[in-house]
């Protein structure tokens, strides 16, 4: 869906992006991760030509972006930034309607779409459509930012630390809701963050960058089990394993048919991280998994948990 080939961008003496090649599949949520200043934003902005690259090529949907009108290209690619950038003098409805209006949709279609989008991001249109950005909380504003970017149903969405400025609680809620929305819509997303937790929680694959170079682009599990360089393991740190556990649930792990008596109980939807925490706090190396009908479906042992993740 998105293909970068040998993309390089310099600012004066400083090489911001250094020969980056990567391919993102349709419907994938790809994370650009790395320390501050490693070139994530520059890479992201080269996709919708907000930044012009020095060399290399970029394809979106097999079309070379350099051969397209930047404005037309951008109308087909959603763009969400950390500072949100809502237009303060326009209502929420008008903000969301920005791209549909640019595309010349009629009023009826635009209104219908605006209401649909506001509901999609969890804002009641009756309550929010006619408000101004200043009347909304940071979290609500970024919901509008996401709705605005999705307005013309773009196949590709670019997001630059979209939840970075929110308080931890709203950030977490938006992360979870956004992940579900993205799965449902099947939008291809390139998501910039410097937050490892967020990257591991959201990403199908993570592209780890350092000093403008792409170090490794893989599933988090692969980054954990087969790091390409020592930088990868040192960047993710010792807790990487726990963060990986939070990506998976108990569901799908083979359970043992032994007596669950005296064991703490979890459900199939419990994350492995929480399951592990429950084992630790209950002082046992096994858990009972409920069958959803009040009984036990079987017992999850510590070694089964560890094996499941390593696979």
């Amino acid at each position: 869906m998105i293909r970068l080939e040998h993309v390089t961008k310099c600012f004066a003496e400083n090489t911001a992006v250094d020969d980056v090649s990567l391919e993102i599949k349709a419907g994938e949520l790809a994370i650009l991760l790395g320390p501050s200043g490693c070139g994530k934003t520059t890479t992201l902005r080269s996709i919708n030509r907000m930044t012009d690259i020095d060399s290399g090529t970029i394809f979106v949907d097999d079309i070379n972006v350099l051969e397209q009108q930047p404005d037309e290209l951008r109308r087909r690619i959603g763009y969400v930034i950390q500072s949100i950038g809502l237009f303060p003098h326009l209502t929420i409805a008008r903000n969301v309607a920005t791209v549909p209006r640019l595309l010349g949709w009629d009023a009826e279609r635009t209104n219908k779409r605006v209401n649909e989008l506001l509901e999609m991001v969890g804002l009641d249109p009756a309550l929010y459509a006619m408000k101004h950005p200043r009347e909304l909380s940071g979290g609500e504003q970024q919901r509008v930012g996401v709705a605005r970017a999705l307005a013309a149903d773009p196949a590709v969405l670019l997001m630059d630390e979209p939840f970075g400025a929110l308080d931890p609680l709203s950030r977490q809620r938006l992360q979870v809701e956004f992940r579900a929305l993205q799965r449902e819509l099947g939008t291809t997303v390139v998501f910039v963050t410097h937050d490892i937790e967020e990257a591991v929680l959201l990403g199908d694959r993570i592209a780890l960058m350092d000093h403008g170079r792409l170090i490794q682009f893989d599933r988090p599990e692969t980054l954990w089990l087969s790091p390409a360089t020592p930088f990868v393991s040192s960047f993710f740190g010792e807790e990487f394993a726990l963060k990986i556990l939070s990506r998976h649930t108990v569901f799908g792990i083979a359970l043992e048919r032994v007596s669950p008596d005296g064991l703490a109980q979890v459900t199939a939807e419990t994350s492995l991280k929480d399951a592990l925490a429950t084992m630790v706090s209950s002082g046992r190396d096994a858990l009972s998994v409920s069958d959803g009908l009040g009984g036990s479906a079987g017992v999850l042992t510590f070694s089964a948990l560890v094996h499941a993740v390593k696979e």
Binding site: N48, M50, P70, D71, E72, L73, R74, R75, R76, Y79, I81, S83, I84, G85, L86, F87, P88, T98, V99, L102, R148
Partner: peptide, 11 residues
């Protein structure tokens, strides 16, 4: 951020 968003929307 506002002008950047406007450009990013394709205005």
């Amino acid at each position: 951020s506002i002008t950047d968003a406007a450009r990013g929307m394709g205005m």
